[in-house]
Design a protein around this nucleic acid. Structure first.
Lengths: 250, 250
DNA sequence: TGTTTGTTTTGACTTAGATCAAACGACTCT
DNA sequence: AGAGTCGTTTGATCTAAGTCAAAACAAACA
């Protein structure tokens, strides 16, 4: 597959004029401030003072670029990917509102992967230096940031399981259930949603070819487990989907 | 495959009487204290006051058990694994001296995987509460701990790449090169070493069956790239190995 | 020292998913 | 509205790796 070339567009637009504030963001329960007290979240507002827009297809950051901030997705949808010298990509994750991007950059001071917007998105920039210093004053921020990183480690453990031991249909079932659950947490329907990524991107994430993804979708539809119309998905039989997923028994 | 049942052995032995001290540990350059000043490392000694032994085959911790500390490997060798309900395992990593285990537990307060010793090992226990509070006084500890977690995220990105896009022989080449490099950092030969894990464990890590691992080893031997005698490996042609690895080009 | 148990190797055969190919539907751009 | 591009579906065929089986080794045990 070919990786899209960077588009000739101005750098991400700074929209910080629209003052950002964690304290009145409706994502505060699932984003970085999760679990912090009202007063503590007030302090967080010092931290996040830039909000940028990233247009569909553009990268928030790219592998090899200097790391200096982590990013909270205010709205939109992203894929993270590593690209080999020869241009093949492995999608390492999909991220949605309230989730944190860029933590891979702390290790070596530069990003390890690309984060590409799959739809027009808004991003809260959290300068890493500020995060570190504010973590001093706010133990709960420190703790929660550790949790966020740890959760990423656990998530990746799950993906390794997926790629290492599961079969194609089990992987796709796991993927759909995960997506459904995360959308549900955000107040969207757990059974009906639009995919933001192509079959090829799903395949890259799940370690299978786009044709195999397509065939698995068709199979699920034939078996009346889901209804698929292009990017639109309706889960008809959640239990059935769970059974396929759990069936990485034998 | 069958997971070994826990052995009837006493809990890990506390050998803290042999006072542990980061400041005169020869692993301090590659372990948690890496990059910290002499004075700072002195303060670290408060942190690590228990050293335990874990015997080969025993678990340092298991998935589901309460998280309250992270662990630095003082000596020995570990595998981390997630196990499914039905008893199949996915090895998520191999860890050696100077590396940190247990960070997966921060996310939900309990461990997400098992850490099993593949040889008799010694472990420095770092109570997480202490780490958090000492991170206050020592910004460089905080920073370095973030780095360690981020590095784990980056490592797992690499494994996803491995499992997602590479072929069997490329995976094994990547595995051997990685092992070689890490042993080398620790002062061991980069070209001659003993594997601590079985073919099945390698296979689980690399997402392939033990027979396929064995065949790939035999192939490498026939091609004069390595010499294999059971667990003993000698890399004869590093360049050749790199070429196989890099050849996830086409 | 011989027996048992676990690990590795190798061969023969099978299969899930990849590859190749073609057609179709949906968007974008002018 | 028409041309071109991109994404998706489906079929036919191929192949890398899985499965099954057996033998050779090595380590542990009694």
């Amino acid at each position: 597959m070919k990786i899209e070339t960077p588009r000739l567009r101005p750098a991400p637009v700074d929209v910080s004029a629209l003052k950002t504030a964690c304290s009145d963001c409706n994502l505060r329960e699932i984003c970085l401030p999760a679990g912090m007290s009202h007063d503590e979240i007030g302090r967080l507002d010092e931290l996040v003072y830039t909000r940028i827009k990233v247009r569909r297809g553009d990268a928030l950051y790219r592998a090899g670029t200097t790391f200096n901030a982590i990013y909270a997705i205010r709205s939109g949808f992203f894929k993270s990917r590593v690209v080999t010298q020869d241009g093949r990509e492995q999608v390492t994750g999909f991220s949605m509102a309230g989730e944190i991007l860029g933590m891979d950059g702390i290790a070596h001071g530069e990003h390890n992967c690309d984060a590409v917007a799959l739809e027009d998105s808004e991003i809260c920039t959290i300068p890493y230096a500020n995060l570190e210093s504010l973590s001093h004053d706010l133990p709960s921020l420190q703790h929660h940031f550790h949790k966020v990183m740890s959760r990423e480690i656990v998530r990746e453990n799950g993906v390794m399981m997926l790629l290492g031991v599961m079969r194609a249909e089990e992987r796709l079932a796991a993927f759909l259930l995960n997506l459904s659950q995360r959308l549900n947490v955000r107040g969207y329907s757990a059974v009906e949603f639009n995919l933001r990524m192509t079959r090829e991107e799903i395949g890259s994430y799940l370690g299978m070819k786009l044709e195999t993804v397509s065939r698995a979708f068709s199979k699920f539809q034939t078996d009346q487990i889901i209804e698929v119309d292009q990017k639109h998905i309706r889960i008809v039989d959640v239990a059935g989907l769970r059974k396929i997923y759990a069936h990485h028994s034998q």
